[in-house]
Amino acid sequence: MNIRQATQRDARIAGNLALLLWPDHTVEELEGEFSELIGDPEAAVFLAFDGEEPAGFSQVQLRHDYVEGTSTSPVGYLEGLFVKEVYRQDGLARELVARAEQWAQDQGCSEFASDCELDNEISLQVHLALGFSEANRIICFTKRIGKAR
């Protein structure tokens, strides 16, 4: 398995992998988002390949705002992680996260964080297996105000 940091020519590959994680988008939307991320010095995308076959990705960004459970800034933040089912249980997610962590450390970060939805038990178990510890559980609220009701 080969893992490398994505370049602009990889935006379509990253978009196609991300579509498997976030199917409520289009590949064009995700390709555009990943193209921006790849060009952003405060973000990185790592791609894993089995030969020429894309197998997974990790996406990391620097967060300068408060990150739950941390005490420093910036914090490296795992924004996305996906491994195709056929490549799971082989340590590929661990390698992709290790690359993201190393990138964050190279940017001066001493803390690394992530999140998942409260009901996403698989993601919770993956995070715990990757060495994350749970910092907090929250429920977020919104409401419309003014004339936009």
Rank of each mutant, 00 (worst) to 15 (best):
V67K: 06
E121F: 09
L37K: 03
N136K: 14
T72E: 13
V86Y: 01
T26I: 12
G91W: 05
E111N: 06
Y87R: 11
G108Y: 08
G108V: 06
I122L: 13
F112R: 08
R88T: 14
R63W: 08
P74F: 11
L128W: 10
R99H: 15
S110Q: 10
L118F: 00
W103N: 08
E111F: 14
Q89V: 10
Q105A: 14
C116R: 01
E79Q: 10
E42H: 10
E52C: 00
R94I: 00
L17A: 11
V60F: 05
C109W: 00
A93K: 08
C109S: 09
L62S: 13
D65Y: 14
A43Q: 08
E117G: 12
P74N: 04
L118A: 01
Y87D: 02
A18E: 04
K84L: 13
E53A: 08
G15C: 09
E68R: 07
E95Q: 15
C109T: 01
E134A: 10
G32Y: 04
I122D: 14
S123V: 10
P54C: 08
A48P: 01
D119G: 15
L37V: 12
R63K: 14
L128F: 13
Q105Y: 09
G32N: 06
Q61K: 15
G51D: 09
G39E: 13
A48C: 01
S123C: 13
V27T: 04
A104C: 09
F82C: 00
L124K: 15
S114K: 09
S73H: 07
S71C: 04
D65F: 10
G91I: 13
D65L: 11
L130G: 12
A43T: 11
E28T: 08
S73T: 15
E33W: 05
G51V: 04
L21I: 13
A93Y: 07
D115R: 12
Y66P: 03
A98L: 04
V126Q: 06
H127Y: 01
F34C: 06
E31T: 15
C109H: 07
E28I: 02
S71A: 14
V126N: 00
F34Q: 02
L124A: 02
D65N: 03
G32A: 06
R88G: 15
H25K: 10
G32V: 07
P23I: 07
D65C: 10
D24C: 00
L78P: 07
I38H: 13
L30H: 07
Y77T: 05
V45L: 11
V67S: 09
G91S: 11
F46T: 07
D115Y: 00
P74D: 08
D90P: 00
Y87M: 06
F49G: 00
C116D: 00
A104M: 05
S73N: 07
T70M: 06
A44S: 12
G15Y: 09
L130M: 12
R63V: 15
P54W: 03
T72H: 12
F46E: 04
R99M: 03
N120I: 14
L92R: 09
C116F: 06
I122Q: 08
T26W: 02
D40M: 07
N16F: 01
V27G: 02
E36T: 00
F46G: 06
V27R: 07
A104K: 05
L118N: 05
L17M: 01
P74K: 02
H127L: 14
A48E: 13
F132V: 10
Y87H: 15
E36D: 02
E53N: 10
P23K: 01
H25L: 02
L21S: 07
